[in-house]
Computed example of a mutant assay.
Amino acid sequence: MPDWPGCYGKLTVPSSKVDVEVANTLYPERAVEPYKAWLEMIHAILQAA
């Protein structure tokens, strides 16, 4: 996720086709990979706690 505390400009991992396309356009160097993004988000939340 290139923009913690968000995730590609969203509060959670983008999942709709449109949201994924927008995220991939905004962050071409970090393509959305939902499984990896969820792992990163969970890890970051646990570290912040």
Rank of each mutant, 00 (worst) to 15 (best):
K17D: 12
P28Y: 02
Y27R: 00
L26N: 15
V13G: 00
C7K: 03
C7Y: 01
H43S: 15
E21R: 11
N24M: 01
I45G: 00
Q47R: 10
K10E: 15
E29H: 09
A48P: 04
A48V: 01
D3M: 03
P34T: 03
D19M: 06
A23F: 02
W4G: 07
E33G: 09
T25H: 11
Y8W: 06
M41G: 06
G9W: 04
S16P: 05
E33H: 13
V32L: 02
K10C: 15
W4Y: 15
K36N: 09
I42V: 10
L39Y: 08
P28R: 04
S16Y: 05
R30H: 15
V13M: 01
A37G: 03
L11F: 11
E29D: 14
E40V: 06
E29F: 07
G6K: 15
W4A: 14
W4F: 15
S15E: 11
K10V: 06
K17T: 12
M1P: 11
D3E: 01
A44C: 09
E33M: 10
A49H: 11
L39V: 07
V18L: 12
A31F: 09
I45N: 05
V18F: 11
G9M: 04
V22S: 12
P2T: 08
C7Q: 04
V18E: 15
M1Y: 09
A37P: 00
P34L: 01
P34V: 05
V20Y: 03
Y8F: 06
P5E: 00
A37S: 06
A49R: 11
I42E: 03
P28L: 03
L46Y: 10
W4E: 09
Y8C: 05
E29P: 05
C7A: 01
M1V: 11
A31P: 15
Q47G: 14
N24E: 01
P28C: 02
E21A: 15
I42Q: 04
H43F: 12
A23H: 01
A23S: 02
W38A: 07
I45F: 06
S15R: 15
S15M: 11
D19Y: 03
P2H: 06
R30M: 14
I45C: 05
C7L: 00
H43Y: 12
I45E: 06
T12N: 10
M1F: 09
S15C: 07
P5I: 03
G9L: 03
L26P: 05
Q47S: 10
M1S: 14
G9H: 01
T25M: 10
K17A: 13
E21W: 02
M41E: 07
V32H: 04
A48H: 06
I45P: 00
V18W: 11
Y35S: 13
G6Q: 14
Y8S: 00
P34M: 02
P5W: 03
S15W: 09
Q47I: 08
A44N: 14
S16L: 04
C7R: 00
T12Q: 12
D19H: 07
A44R: 14
V32I: 01
